[in-house]
């Protein structure tokens, strides 16, 4: 069933993009409503997951522009995202979590298109070709957006580290 197969994937995309748990729940519900309405238009020669991610991406970016999602603060980097990684010792884990927190907050500095490209590439681990299909953009543009996003996040990380010293 569609909900069982895709709900977690879509919710995580919405949460990583919007940064707010409750907003992500509402966005996921709206995306599924839109999905059921658009299903009759689905071209069966296309890849369904890519089509669903395109629909989700379009909805999330539209909502971002309409409702100024950037002005709603991102959740604190809390229990939803702090998954202990058994590879690290406690001190390394603390440092890694601090970096994750700074990067999570740094998403607010990225424009919606760049933010989406970085999420799809670096968090969801998609190939550049898949992102180009999802975002309906040329491959070069996708690579350039991911690159710009990473550089912006690196600078945010640097500024925050300098600020906290």
């Amino acid at each position: 069933m569609l909900v069982n197969s895709y709900s977690k994937k879509i919710f995580n995309l919405a949460y990583q993009f919007a940064g707010n748990y409750e907003a992500a729940e509402d966005l996921t519900q709206e995306i599924f409503l839109k999905l059921y309405n658009s299903l009759p238009k689905f071209d069966f020669t296309r890849n369904f997951t890519a089509w669903l991610l395109t629909l989700s991406k379009n909805y999330l970016i539209d909502q971002y522009r309409k409702t100024k999602l950037e002005k709603t603060s991102r959740d604190e980097f809390d229990e939803h995202l702090l998954a202990a990684d058994p590879k690290f010792d406690p001190e390394t884990e603390l440092l890694a979590n601090e970096s994750k927190r700074l990067v999570w907050e740094g998403f607010n500095h990225l424009s919606p298109d760049i933010r989406m490209a970085v999420i799809l590439r670096d968090i969801q681990g998609k190939k550049y070709e898949e992102i180009a299909e999802i975002m309906t953009l040329p491959l070069g543009t996708v690579k350039s957006r991911v690159n710009r996003g990473r550089l912006q996040l690196a600078r945010v990380l640097k500024d925050k580290k300098v600020g906290s010293r």
Partner: peptide, 23 residues
């Protein structure tokens, strides 16, 4: 560091309430 942080973001579980809403 950015790349390592992003790759290590965990997949968040969805709540039972949202699952019901989606069903």
């Amino acid at each position: 560091e950015v790349s390592a942080s992003l790759t290590a973001f965990p997949e968040v579980e969805i709540s039972g309430e949202l699952q019901n809403r989606l069903q």
